[in-house]
Amino acid sequence: MAEAMASNGYVSGSNLEKVLRAGHFAVTAELGPPQSADGEVIRKKAGLLRGFCDAVNITDNQTAIVRMSSIGAGAILVREGLEPVIQMTCRDRNRLAIQSDLLGAYALGMRNVLCLTGDHQTFGNHPQAKNVFDIDSVQLIQMVKTLRDERAFQCGDPLKGSEPRFFIGAAESPFADPVEFRPYRLGKKIKAGANFIQTQLVFDIPAFEAFMEKVRSLGLHQQAYILAGVGPLKSPAMAKYMKESVPGILIPDELIQRLEEAGKPWAGKSKDELTKEEKKARSEAWKQTGIEICIELIQHILRIEGVAGVHIMAIEWEEAVAPIVKGAGLYPRPVVEPLPA
């Protein structure tokens, strides 16, 4: 990447790359495809995100639950004029399938790919499935880079024609274990060819600052664009669940208390005692607080050296993205003219 940047040439020319290269604080958002063949869902969600982010991540059977394919949904997004980040996991495809899918994705106009290991299939709705894991996420990054920069397949054979020029993304979970190894693992991914990084959800700012300090000491922030993962909490129960059950997610107790505080007018009553309207009002109060917290987190993150943007994961709540982006002062999104060649 260093050499590509020095020559002023884009590696992919994607909007996300252009925004980051121009030095803007980037915003990406996540879009979860439906568990159906209904393309209208994608178009509707695209409408919620249009104008509020620089690129849209489309998950790849997230949590191992079968959904419309990332590339299929991505093709719809391209038609809608939004830029997708195709998420690609190693769980469901071997090196043949991944490469062929990526060739197809590029031909359909997709320019960003996020290389992931993938959640284990035991979490999803087909726990009986055989997994693949032919390659891991680091090797996947390397493979996409080889396709792009060496115009060769993983086996070494040359491509017979034009190469897929992807802006290559990778994920990092700063607080998963072993925590001391995480910055080095990030370094491995950047060495393998990652151009941008999207992290697991960040709620604990001091912990993330410590991670970024290590990242800066390794010089990694100068070799890839690091986008911090953020997301709105929907309820105290969701926050507690994530804190306790999702590996690598730290949620300070004070954030959970703030959510509980927001639900106080309805506290002390059991689920059955609340009317439908009361439940709705309580849910709205929680959501409002969740969005506020998310905005505050972004404002903290904006001040951390070496962070190039945020990746908003509003899981099955894409409506939250617009108020978050506006609230954080990141709207409107920049329109970047290509740099001169």
Partner: peptide, 25 residues
């Protein structure tokens, strides 16, 4: 659980695998 070759995935927590807390990472 994923036969990875380049280090732990993001599912490693407190020495356990995300698949099952009975499985050491």
């Amino acid at each position: 659980s994923k036969s990875l070759l380049n280090g732990p995935c993001g599912g490693s927590q407190n020495g356990h695998c995300e698949v099952n807390p009975d499985i050491p990472c």
